[in-house]
Design a binder for these strands. Structure first.
Lengths: 162, 162
DNA sequence: ATAAGTGCAAAACATTTGCACTTTG
DNA sequence: CAAAGTGCAAATGTTTTGCACTTAT
């Protein structure tokens, strides 16, 4: 049945969880799987994904699992400028995000691209950039640039989160 | 009584409201006044300020007034990376924000300081920066740099919003 | 008078928490 | 079995909304 399937499919995932001191339950494997796409997802995205295979899973469980994964350094909580929290698999190297204001698409930006920022900020304000926080940069993605010359008001496409 | 006082003190403010097509009520003048400090405040900050002079003012009124002021271009809704919304008086020139992760202090950053950013973002991702969105940059303010060498965990000072 | 603005109570949200029950090791 | 994890229901905190009442013009 579903329980066993989920557990078998996620041998590597189970190991990841164990290493983090978490018991590999079906629910947690599904959360990890939803995160595994490499994209940026909300708790609700994860819940929806998990419910497909495990309908009884509860939001609390998703939130608690995410907390545990973040604490274990497996997941990362990311502010993308909206009112909800986003989560992604933790990467080893720091990166930032460009977020399309039209469709919500998100891309990574190497830390190096912001190299010039720290000195400029320090010079103007004396503030020092934190070495581990990510910066969310509102922007327009290439697809939306060509698709919608200037209709900011109406037809928000909202492609899925990439 | 309070009503008249508030109204007299805010002749210029009343004019601002009228120009925006808003009737200058005591409540709105107080919202404007709370915003007037030039800082970044939450709806609740404004509510607290307004209640000092007008105890019966309601959160809904603050929110509705802020909506109106934002729509009129008088106020600006600003994402400072927290879970609540911040508001400030709209400036004519675009600027960004550095936000101290230790105490919450906020400073402005001239758009020019980010001049190098747009080309770097375009080169790496193809995304184009939006001309009117602000970027919130998490950082550590000078005061917190010297005050707290490395106690990220405990003594969060949380000075008032500047 | 008429439209705009207000207060209140209730709803909408995303997220958190207390607690009893179930699962894992 | 004990500890960890789960579901459920209720609470949280911020923001929004419906509606009847008040105020500004």
């Amino acid at each position: 049945m579903q329980l066993r399937d989920a557990r078998n499919a996620g041998d590597a995932a189970a190991a990841i969880l164990r290493r983090a001191g978490c018991r590999p339950t079906a629910q947690r494997l599904l959360v990890l799987q939803a995160l595994g796409g490499g994209g940026h997802v909300t708790a609700d995205d994860i819940l929806v994904h998990a419910r497909e295979r495990y309908p009884s899973i509860n939001p609390s469980t998703v939130y608690r699992t995410l907390d545990a994964l973040v604490a274990a350094g497996i997941a990362r909580r990311t502010d993308l400028g909206s009112d909800r929290l986003y989560f992604e698999v933790a990467r080893t190297h720091r990166h930032h995000h460009v977020v399309c204001q039209e469709c919500g698409a998100v891309e990574h930006l190497h830390d190096a691209a912001l190299a010039a920022l720290a000195p400029a900020v320090a010079a103007e304000t004396g503030y020092r950039l934190t070495p581990d926080q990510e910066i969310a940069i509102p922007a327009i993605c290439p697809a939306c640039q060509s698709a919608a010359p200037a209709d900011a008001e109406k037809g928000h496409h909202h492609h899925a989160h990439p």
